Simulated assay, not measured.
Amino acid sequence: MTHVEGEITAELVRDLVREQHPDLADRPVRLGARGWDNQLWRLGDDLAVRLPWATGSADALLRNEHAWLPMLAPRLPLPVPVPQRLGEPSERFPRPWLITTWVPGTPADRAPVTRTADAAATLATFLSALHRPAPSGAPTGRERGGPLADRADQFAGGVTAATERGLIDDPDAVRAVWHDAVTAPRWTGPALWIHADLHPANVLTADGTLCGVIDFGDVCAGDPAYDLAAGWLLLPDDTIDHFYAAYRPTPDAATMRRARGWAMARALGGILIGDAGVHGRPGGKPSWGPPAHAALQRLIATIR
């Protein structure tokens, strides 16, 4: 991860807002969170400023979210950070930035689901509302929502790395889940809107259930199986059947197999990122490890 030069401070955020959106300049500013791509600063009680601070792709993701999420948000049954203003690059800060609505809650990697039935139904209802045919001009996610086979080399490398670090006990079982998914029939329906980054750090919880979804930078058109993988990542044991039963239309067997493969890929990535965080390596997130390990064990259990 390559971070922006110089520190992002409350003073910098206030100056940016004052320059480009002066009608909001009197609102108090305080740090909200530091994520993978962006820092989030509270702007009063109901707004937030998102500034990219890592990865070169973050700029395009912010613009993607600004372009498409306002159209999708009205039909979504959970709160999402709806873009309100776009900040353009300037001498003060050389990257685009967003002002969005603030969504309260705690990321699920730090506050896991405990009300399982409610969370399963809530996640299914949210994805049922999001997964509608996308227009022809919608962005496409080749790596997220495309064929799993396109990620085969990356997956193999992740298994090797995790095995060498002693992070997984049964790499053959991990590969078996992936192989079953890769050999499932491909998605032949219309390209549907998908969130495309629905892991525990991007889903908020309160009182043991889901209360919001954030970070729509990767939103695109593709195979809904990519998002359905979130059931394995977010929901505790013995909940996935309730999730699939509540999702509409009911997914077929091939879609569930692909979702299981994507979930394994996301779990493997979370394990590696969590381990990097534990050891203080750049880009690491210690809180990503435990939910990823739990998901991997759930997935392995389906083939034993």
Rank of each mutant, 00 (worst) to 15 (best):
C220T: 15
A73K: 11
A161I: 00
V113Q: 02
H66W: 14
R151Y: 09
R142E: 13
D180M: 07
A67N: 01
S128Y: 05
V213F: 11
L61R: 01
L12D: 02
P77Q: 13
L69R: 12
M71W: 15
T55R: 14
E11C: 07
V4I: 14
P282H: 03
W53H: 15
D197V: 08
A149R: 15
L210R: 05
H131C: 05
L296N: 09
F216M: 03
P112I: 11
G269Q: 04
L299D: 00
A119Q: 00
A294G: 01
T9C: 05
R248L: 09
D237R: 11
A181F: 11
R63H: 12
T100A: 06
E91H: 12
L210T: 04
L16N: 09
V213D: 06
V182D: 08
D223A: 12
P94F: 04
A58F: 05
G141V: 03
P22R: 15
H199Q: 07
D15S: 15
D150I: 06
A119V: 03
D46E: 14
G222E: 01
A201K: 10
D150W: 14
L198T: 08
A276D: 15
T116S: 12
Y247G: 03
P94G: 07
D170K: 13
L148E: 10
D223G: 10
P22S: 15
W232M: 06
D241L: 04
L123D: 05
D218K: 01
G222P: 00
P147S: 12
R34W: 11
D45P: 01
E164G: 08
A138C: 05
L47H: 07
L43H: 03
I168E: 10
R266K: 15
P190N: 08
R258W: 02
A33Y: 00
Y247N: 08
H3N: 10
S128A: 13
T209H: 13
D238F: 10
D237T: 09
R175A: 13
R260I: 06
A206R: 14
L234D: 02
G56M: 11
P79M: 02
Y226W: 10
D207I: 01
I214T: 13
A221K: 13
Q297G: 03
T125L: 03
R144Y: 08
A138P: 01
R257W: 08
T160L: 12
R63C: 09
D46P: 05
I194D: 03
G145Y: 02
P185Y: 11
L192C: 10
P133I: 05
A191G: 15
G289Q: 12
I300K: 06
A184H: 03
L43D: 01
L24R: 02
H179Q: 15
G270A: 00
A259P: 00
G269S: 10
P290L: 12
N64V: 04
V203F: 00
W36F: 14
A33L: 02
A265Q: 04
R27M: 13
I240Q: 11
R144F: 10
R50I: 02
L268E: 02
P81R: 15
A108F: 11
T183Y: 08
G284F: 00
P83T: 14
L233P: 03
T122C: 08
P22L: 11
P112Q: 10
A254S: 15
E11I: 13
A229M: 07
D150A: 15
R30K: 12
A253M: 09
Q20M: 09
G141C: 02
L192S: 03
L78P: 09
P190C: 09
G35C: 02
A267D: 06
D241P: 02
S57R: 13
T255N: 07
D37H: 14
P200Q: 04
M256R: 15
